[in-house]
Each structure stands twice: as C-alpha cells, then as structure tokens.
Nucleic acid binder design. Structure first.
Length: 416
DNA sequence: GTGGGGGAG
DNA sequence: CGTTCTCCCCCAC
C-alpha cells in the first residue's frame, strides 16, 4: 500500500476516533483514551501518551518512526509480552514456593546475563534493571528462534518466539474482533486478610452467590415487553457450569516471618443447577441453595481438610454460556455504521461493506482534512476539526459526521 | 470439558 | 498511582 494512502487512512481513523470519543463523552459521560495506529499493539502503546482523556495518533507511520517508538519502551511494557516477572512454580516442597521468571523477566535476564533485579515491595514488583526493546532487538543472535528457545516450552503458546519477535519489531497482525453481546463468563470475587473458619466461608459464599445471581439478572436477562401482558423477562443465555476458585495464602517463611506472595489459584467446577434460573423465587433463597448444593461440595473437593486452610481470595463464576437460540438482539449497537444513523427512515444503512468502500474511495482523494506537514511525530486531538454535528446525505439520507460526507459523496459518484 | 496460568485493563 | 476485581485466551490432559 502506498505510503500516502496509509497516511490518509490514519487521518480518517483519527477523525472517526475523535468523533466516537466525543460522542461517548457527550452522550454517556464517559471519558476515554484513544490511540490510533496501524495495529492493535501500536494503538495501545500510543494511547498511553495522552492519558486519561485524549487521543494520539502515531504519525507519520513510517518504518523508522514505528521502530524508534517501539525501541524506547521497556520490554515489559509491550502488550503481549507482559510485565509480570515471577510466578510461583513447581511443587511446594516445604514452605517456600520457588520463583521462576516469566516472559519479560526471562528476556531481561538474557540481556543482562544475570537475573534482573526486581524491587519487591510487600505487594508489588518494580523493575530495577530497565531493559529496552532496542537493547534486546539488536542483540547478537536475536530473532524468532532464539526467542523460542528462551520463552517456549510446555504450557506456552507454540508460536511464542515468532510472536514475540514480531512484537519487538512493531508487527502485530492480530485481528480486531467483533464485540460480543454477552460475556463468556460472569464472576464475583473478594479478597481477605483472613478467612479460615468454616462459618466465615459459608457466609462469604452466600454473599458472593447473592451478588452473582443479581449480576446474572442484570447481564443475562432481557425485558420481554411482548404486548400488554405482565412484564416478563427471559434469559439471553444459560451458563452451564459453576466454578469455585480460591487462592490459598502463601506459606510463612519461618525465618523472616514474611509470606511468599502467591498468585496461585485452585478451582473446581460442576454443572450449574437449573433452579438458579428461577425468576419467581427470591434471590437469597436461591443463593442459599446454591451454596448448600453446589458451592460447599466444590469447596470440600478443593479443601478436603477439616481446617488448616487460610484463603486470601474466593471467586465464584458461571461459565460455558449457551446463548438462547433465535435471539434477535444481534449486533445492534456494535456496528459503528449504525451509530452514525439516527433516523430509521434512512433507506440505505451504512453497513460494513459500504464503509469499506468509503475507505477505499477516500484513498484517492486529495487530502483536505487538515494540513499535517507541520507534525513529524504525533497527531493529537487538537489538530482535528471540531464540527461534529451529524448531517444527512442529500442523495440517500444517511446520517454521518461532516468529515465523512465528502468521501460518501464520491461513494455515490462511483455508481452506487 | 476441566483445571491451571499469563495477561490486560 | 497502585490494588482489586473481572474477563479473556491458551495450554495440557
């Protein structure tokens, strides 16, 4: 693709993002941070530049600009590599769980030829040894194969070497997925400084269950205002499984008295009983029954010992969402095109195919949106036009922001 | 499908 | 600004 057209696409993307940002703020009162670039990873990274309520576009999108941008980041900052540095691993022999480096930390260690220093506060980790993407990227032998050797192994994604190498070079081909109308799981959890008696556990499970059922009602029920009968509600989806997870508190070091920080979770799951979907019974009663018949059995599976456990976290989740068939509530509100339309008498919807056409056509036009030659690195919010009132096409009536109208006209000129 | 884990936000 | 909570995806089995 020609360099020039890429610039135009980014300009259009910036305008679109700006419009959405503004609409979100004006109509919903939400602030948002926006990053615009040629991939999800780069967009996320540039978005960090102006937080919390502005947008940034990586511009111009030249190879050198992208490389320089990526290179200056600490390795752990790259989305997909991750910041996390140690994970508990192996069997707990006695009291201390061995700590093993994970991705970013393995890479730091490789560069430094020694384990990177991490500053461990009571609860958080900070990098002491700051290793940049550039330092790693330009190392001897660095490439997908070496990265595979460094990072690969059982439990890790098979293509981790190639993926990581691509990320270090600013390349990310992951797709922008369609937003789901329903989550895959709903979970409630709470953490505790001390939770070690059966009575307390039961109490917490009841409380979590009540909240979970209420969440299910909010997120999975649809009002069925069919006709004039008593208002009824129907389930948009039925989760099939219930899962109980806990996080045992790390063992205490007998010498220092400090506790090894444990991320380790354990879980057990079981079929979700149907009575949870009953809308006539009261929530507390359903919750109590759920605790007695599902969660306590799961808890006993998880912790067979009568006592001695000490939990720092309890999580209750419903998963394996089965969407109710024939649901008409498809992707409405998810399609960006439909957000531009606010009249239902519009004959022609601005659907995905049409938007693509619009983008293609816009590539051959002369750039009139703004003069960008005075910006070498970033294109920020303030550079964009401010007129965001929606206007109608005089040919088809489609509603859209003014910045899109010009290209839309050419869409008609091309015989549509 | 279950259980464990990294990771994002 | 850091912690907590929620969610997602991937893997081994």
């Amino acid at each position: 693709m020609a360099h020039d057209s890429l610039q135009r696409r980014l300009m259009l993307g910036s305008h679109l993002a700006h419009y959405l940002h503004r609409q979100l703020e004006e109509q919903k009162g939400y602030t948002s941070t926006v990053g615009v670039s040629t991939s999800k990873m780069l967009s996320k990274l540039v978005g960090n530049i102006k937080k919390p309520n502005a947008q940034t576009t990586l511009f111009p999108p030249s190879r050198t600009n992208v490389t320089t941008f990526i290179d200056n980041h600490e390795i752990g900052k790259i989305p997909g590599i991750g910041f996390k540095m140690v994970k508990p691993s192996g069997v707990v022999i006695r009291k201390i769980r061995p700590l093993t480096p994970v991705k970013a930390q393995k890479l730091r260690g490789h560069y430094l030829k020694k384990p990177a220093k991490v500053q461990e506060d009571l609860v958080t980790f900070n990098v002491k040894d700051y290793v940049t993407v550039k330092q790693l990227r330009t190392m001897e032998q660095m490439g997908p194969e070496l990265l595979q050797k460094l990072l690969g192994g059982p439990g890790w994604p098979a293509d981790i070497g190639h993926k990581t190498w691509a990320l270090m070079n600013g390349v990310d081909d992951s797709e922008v997925g369609q937003a789901r109308d329903l989550p895959r799981q709903i979970s409630l959890e709470d953490s505790y400084t001390r939770l070690d008696t059966y009575e307390e556990i039961v109490k917490e499970l009841r409380s979590l269950s009540r909240s979970l059922i209420k969440r299910m009602h909010v997120d999975l029920l649809e009002d069925e205002s069919n006709g004039d009968e008593a208002p009824s509600r129907r389930w948009l989806a039925h989760p099939k499984t219930i899962r109980l997870s806990t996080r045992p508190r790390g063992a205490q070091d007998p010498v220092t008295g400090t506790r090894a920080r444990s991320f380790h979770r354990v879980s057990r799951s079981a079929p979700l009983p149907n009575f949870i979907f009953n809308l006539n019974d009261n929530v507390d009663a359903i919750a109590d029954r759920l605790v007695d018949e599902s969660l306590l059995p799961l808890f006993r599976k998880l912790h067979p010992d009568q006592s001695g456990w000490n939990l720092s976290l309890v999580n209750v989740a419903v998963t394996n969402m089965i969407e109710t068939a024939g649901d008409s509530k498809s992707a409405s509100g998810r399609d960006i095109g439909s957000m531009f339309k606010n009249q239902e008498d519009v004959l022609r919807e601005w659907k995905v195919e049409d938007r693509d056409a619009l983008l293609e056509h816009s590539q051959s036009e002369t750039n009139h949106m703004s003069s960008n030659t005075d910006h070498d690195d970033w294109l920020s919010d303030e550079d964009l036009d401010e007129d965001l009132t929606s206007t109608a096409c005089h040919l088809c009536g489609a509603q859209m922001p003014p910045f899109a109208m010009d290209a839309h006209q050419r869409f008609h000129e091309n015989g549509e």
